[in-house]
């Protein structure tokens, strides 16, 4: 490849996948309201088959929302490595093979969570910049040409962040329940601190004794902020977390049986949750509405219900 072809190829790729595709992604492909009924799929940006691939299975390269618009550059580098496998050096082979296997593992098992895909981002940035440096040396790019490339890469990164922030703002505007420090109002402390304020005082005020056992719906803050006994539960998987296992609570039980189990066997009279978490399981939410009495809603939307007597 000569210098001209290299420049045309790189500029073309940067324009296509650093600018055009991200604009399509943020302005058209990423929904601002849930497409399917599953709130967690929407939250994770996996609500459509296309997004399942972009943000999920190939999220390590193409999750533009969280990883920026340059992680895809690892794809041509990997293709180059595979095509020239026998001619590249052992360290290049080790890096390429490790990346392919690592990305496969993350894509298959951890693609639902951008945090796992983020693992490779610093590596891809280093690979891209070192590759470009090698290419600059090889083709004899002038200082001005090199600066043009670097400025373009920074510009693409800035554009991506602007588009990602704009998406968050539009999502906030379309969803009354969307809550995040960067889209909320109020003082810095109010934006950053979403924890229940004075949890102990709030519970005491509602007459919950320090020895009363409470069903805690996936809120570890209960154990961090209080010394009170709790039964850990997650309505999303309908599992109780007990000393000898993680049995279902609602599965194969009527609401009356659930209430009896909680009150009589587990000696639990209260349920601690949040409005948002309770929506993850319609059956749990219905149980709260029909078999329990709402004692209070804390200003951060934490809720405390008392299980009604049969």
């Amino acid at each position: 490849m000569d210098k001209r072809t290299f420049d045309r190829t790189v500029w073309g790729l940067l324009l296509a996948f650093g600018v055009v595709v991200p604009v399509l992604y943020f302005r058209w492909w990423m929904p601002v309201t849930p497409v399917s009924g599953d709130p967690s799929l929407f939250e994770r940006g996996l609500g459509t088959p296309l997004l399942l691939w972009l943000n999920g299975r190939l999220g390590t390269f193409l999750n533009f929302r969280f990883l920026g618009s340059l992680s895809w550059t690892a794809i041509p580098l990997l293709v180059l490595a595979v095509v020239r496998w026998k001619r590249i050096l052992p360290w290049q082979r080790s890096l390429a093979l490790f990346t392919i296997l690592g990305v496969l593992v993350i894509g298959v098992f951890g693609g639902f969570n951008y945090r796992y895909a983020l693992t490779f981002e610093p590596l891809f940035v280093m690979a891209l910049f070192l590759f470009l440096h090698q290419a600059f040396e090889h083709f004899g790019h002038s200082l001005v040409q090199r600066r043009r490339y670097l400025l373009a890469l920074v510009g693409i990164a800035v554009l991506n962040t602007a588009l990602a922030i704009d998406l968050r703002q539009r999502t906030k505007a379309a969803n009354a329940t969307f809550s995040s420090p960067d889209t909320e109002g109020g003082s810095l402390k109010e934006r950053l601190d979403s924890s229940p304020q004075d949890l102990e005082g709030w519970l005491k005020g509602m007459g919950v004794a320090a020895t009363d056992t409470v069903l805690v719906n996936n809120l570890p803050v209960w154990y961090y902020r209080t010394e009170r006994p709790g039964i850990y539960y997650w309505c999303g998987s309908d599992q109780l977390f007990l000393e000898d296992g993680t049995p279902f609570l609602f599965h194969d039980r009527t609401d009356a049986e659930v209430a009896t189990l909680l009150r009589d066997s587990l000696h639990c009279r209260y349920i601690f949750s949040t409005k948002e978490l309770s929506t993850f399981a319609p059956r749990f939410q219905t149980f709260l509405e029909e078999r329990c009495t709402l004692l209070g809603t804390e200003h951060r939307d934490h809720t405390l219900h008392r299980i009604d007597a049969p």
């Binding site: 981002e121 670097l150 962040t161």
Partner: peptide, 25 residues
């Protein structure tokens, strides 16, 4: 690591790495 190649490459690389929302989080 990048500075070993070029100081300004390091500046651009580090900035590019930190700008995505995921890294800011």
């Amino acid at each position: 690591v990048l500075r070993r190649a070029s100081p300004w490459l390091a500046a651009a690389g580090a900035l590019t790495m930190t700008l995505p929302l995921g890294f800011l989080f």
